[in-house]
Computed example of a mutant assay.
Amino acid sequence: MPSLITHLKNIEYLTDFKSSNAFMILTAKQAYLFTDGRYLEKAKNLAQQGKSRLGKFTVIEMGKDLIETLKKISEKHKFSILEYEDEHISVAKYEHFRKILKGMRWQKGEKGIENQRSRKDASELKKLKKSQQINEQLFYSIRALLTPGITELEIAQQIKKRCYDHGADDISFEPIIGFGNHSSMPHHQNTTRKLKKGELVLIDMGVLFQGYASDMTRMVFTKSPTAFEEKIYNLVLEAQEAAIQAMQPGRHCDAIDQVARTLLTQAGYGETFCHSLGHGIGLEVHEAPTLSVRSKDMLQEGMVVTSEPGIYLPGQFGVRIEDMIAITKKGHENLTSAPKGIKESILS
């Protein structure tokens, strides 16, 4: 069925074309990429090379003739129904397209491209592995900066600055740096708070390598943890590892989430685990599948997902540990090698 593609990451996946303004019309026989003059030369070069997943495609400049061009395409390919990406189009744009293509029946798409993106090929897996390797090397250099007096914002800025030195394209998301009780907020926003000796630190960070994201969370103790901190940390680590060991093709994602959630619940901390276990990762740091209690997704070979359970105690501290896991033909492969035992998490 012909489809309107408005999600820029889906366009990038199909064509290797990156921009801030584009859409595509896909038909059974031809693919049309629309963009503005800023990106036209780049788009045409990629189309002529024909090395993308779509092979060659037709590039059309957005302009005064857009309405007439879209009408001609619909007439040429004789389609009266058009699928669209309902989660990736604004109401204004949707209404705009409906006005242009009057009489067209509009049907919500079935996320075919997202489902295809969720199963990585060998080239994508290689890029994801390299992205995480860079992320870990960057983490080690950042870990060494954790001395009293440095601020959360300064650590975040150093991650952004140093990622290029390690070979990354950019960061994949705004780093989360939580000192002391700030770690009890899962998506804490960095502040000018200064690190004090004895505080634990939560670092959630990732980079991009050739467009592919990494994502990792590690805890760092600036002195030996208390007995209670050690108990909480080891509970989270046990839940994370249990969930990872359960990952294999054919397993339902809600069941994987439940493995970690049940363990934490039985220990009396189920209510403090206030988010899903994990998510897919690729061109976007958050993509299909979703590992949550409500997920209807199933793990398949080629997927790369995170496992990141947490316990968050408001006003005290929080612990989250996150790895990237590739689903293989017979099980899984952990793409994260940064040590996470509690002894390795203590600054010497």
Rank of each mutant, 00 (worst) to 15 (best):
H188Y: 12
G180A: 11
Q189T: 13
I171F: 06
Q157R: 13
E174C: 01
G180D: 10
I155P: 12
G178H: 05
A156E: 13
Y164A: 10
G198T: 09
K194P: 01
E154Q: 11
L200M: 08
Q157V: 07
I177A: 00
H187L: 15
I177Y: 00
E199A: 06
D169P: 10
I159P: 00
E174A: 01
R193S: 07
H166G: 02
K196C: 10
G180F: 14
D170C: 01
P186Q: 10
E199M: 12
T192E: 05
K160A: 15
N181R: 08
I171M: 10
F173W: 10
D169S: 09
K196W: 14
H188I: 02
I159E: 15
R162G: 07
A168K: 12
L153I: 13
Y164D: 05
I155W: 14
D165Q: 07
K194W: 02
L195H: 12
V201I: 15
L153M: 12
K160T: 11
I171W: 14
T151F: 00
K196P: 12
L195C: 12
K197W: 11
S184T: 07
G198N: 10
T151L: 00
T191G: 00
D170L: 03
H188N: 11
A168C: 06
P186A: 12
Y164P: 11
F173R: 06
K196E: 15
H182C: 06
P186D: 05
Y164S: 06
D170F: 09
D170H: 02
L200F: 05
S172V: 04
E154A: 09
L195V: 03
E152A: 04
G198V: 10
N190D: 03
I176D: 02
F179I: 01
N190M: 02
I171R: 09
P175T: 15
S184C: 09
H182L: 04
I155G: 14
I171K: 06
V201M: 11
F173S: 03
R193C: 00
H166C: 02
R193E: 05
N181C: 09
A156G: 12
E152M: 09
K161F: 15
K194Q: 15
R162H: 15
E152W: 03
G167W: 05
D170Y: 05
P175Q: 09
F173G: 01
G178E: 09
S184D: 03
G180R: 06
E152C: 06
K160C: 07
H182Q: 09
R193A: 04
R162W: 13
H187A: 13
N181D: 09
F179G: 04
Q189M: 08
D169F: 07
D165V: 02
D170N: 08
E174W: 00
Y164C: 04
N181K: 13
L153P: 01
D170R: 08
S183T: 10
L195Q: 09
F179H: 03
D165A: 13
E199G: 07
G167N: 10
E174I: 08
Q157K: 11
S183V: 03
K161V: 11
I176T: 15
I155F: 13
S172T: 02
F173P: 00
V201C: 08
P186H: 14
H188P: 01
D170P: 01
A168L: 03
D165H: 06
I171G: 07
I159W: 09
L195W: 15
E199D: 10
E174Q: 14
K197V: 14
Q157Y: 13
H182K: 03
R162L: 14
P175A: 12
C163I: 05
F173K: 11
Q158C: 07
K194H: 11
R162F: 14
Y164E: 08
K197Y: 13
